[in-house]
Design a protein around this nucleic acid. Sequence first.
DNA 1: ATAATAATAGTCAATATTAGTCAAAGATAA
DNA 2: TTATCTTTGACTAATATTGACTATTATTAT
Lengths: 155, 155
Amino acid sequence: MQSQNISDIIEKYLKSILADSEHVEIRRSEIADLFNVVPSQINYVIKTRFTIQNGYLVESKRGGGGYIRIEKVNLVDDADVLDALIQVIGDSITQRDAYAVVQSLYEDDVLNRREAQLILVAIDHETLGLTDRDLENSLRARIIIGILNHLRYES
Amino acid sequence: MQSQNISDIIEKYLKSILADSEHVEIRRSEIADLFNVVPSQINYVIKTRFTIQNGYLVESKRGGGGYIRIEKVNLVDDADVLDALIQVIGDSITQRDAYAVVQSLYEDDVLNRREAQLILVAIDHETLGLTDRDLENSLRARIIIGILNHLRYES
DNA sequence: ATAATAATAGTCAATATTAGTCAAAGATAA
DNA sequence: TTATCTTTGACTAATATTGACTATTATTAT
C-alpha cells in the first residue's frame, strides 16, 4: 500500500487532518508549495478524491484571503445529501466513482466490510463483462441507486 | 525436468515473494525488464497463474505511480459447493431461480439476511431495468457468479 | 465611488506515465 | 498433426502532472 504518486500523498495529508477535525481549510498555493507541485494539481486531487461520491463537500473562495474548504459528510443519514448523490450519479457512473460511493458508505458505517465488498463485486467491470461501456455505466448506476434506496428505507 | 518457460519462472519469482509476505506489489515494466519480456507477458502470467481459484486477488492502477498488486487469500473449505452452484447457473439465470439460489445461501448461513437482501436488490429485474430478457438473465448470472467467487475466500 | 492592481482559485488541454486488451505468430505437448 | 500454451507487439485505456489562460474577490489609488 505504498502511495507512489504525489496526488496520493496529498490526499493522505488532507485526510489525516480530516481525521481530527470536521473540516480542513487550506490555501491552495501553500499546499502546492508544501508538496512542490503546481497549484492546479491541488484541484486535480480534490476533483478525483474529494467528490460527493467520496463523501466530501468542497467550497472555495478566490481573491485575497481565498481558501479551499473540504468537509466530510455522511451520505445516507442526511436525506438531502443522499438525494444530491443520487442526482449526481444520474443514469451513469464509472467504476471508480461507484467504488468511491461504496467506500464512503463503509466509512460512514452504513455498510460493513463484507457488505461493501459484495456490492463492489456486483458492480465490477469484470463481473458485468460488457463491452459496451455506456451500458456498463448505466447498469452500474441502477444497481448503486437501487442499493442506496434500499439503505434509505432500511434506516 | 520440466521445461521452464519464462512464464513459469516469473510465476515462481512472484510466488517466492508471496511466501514471505502477504502480498507483492510490482511495477509491470520493471518485472518485464527484469526477465526480458514484453510488459503484456506479465498480464499473461497473472491471468493464467494468479486466479481466484488458486487463491490470489489482483488489483492494479495505471498512470504515474501505477502498480500491480497480488495478494494471497485463504480459500474457504466449501469451495466445492460454490463450484457446483456456479456450474448450475451457467451463463444465464432467471430472477426466480436466482432468488432460490440466494435463499439457499441464506439458509445455509453463507449469507445473512441483510447480505441476501442487498444481493437481491442488485439482481432484481426492476433494478437492472433492461428490456432484453436474455441480457438481463446473463448479467444476473455474472453478478451471482461474481459473488460466489468472492465467497471463496475470507478477506 | 470608481478604476486599477493584486491576490487568490478554476478550467482545460497537452503531455507523461503507467497498465490492459487482443489477436497473430511461434513453440510445445498430446 | 493438431490442440493448447506461450510470446510478442500494436493499439487502447486510465491516471497523473504541468502550465497557460481565465475568473473571482479584495485592496489600493485616484
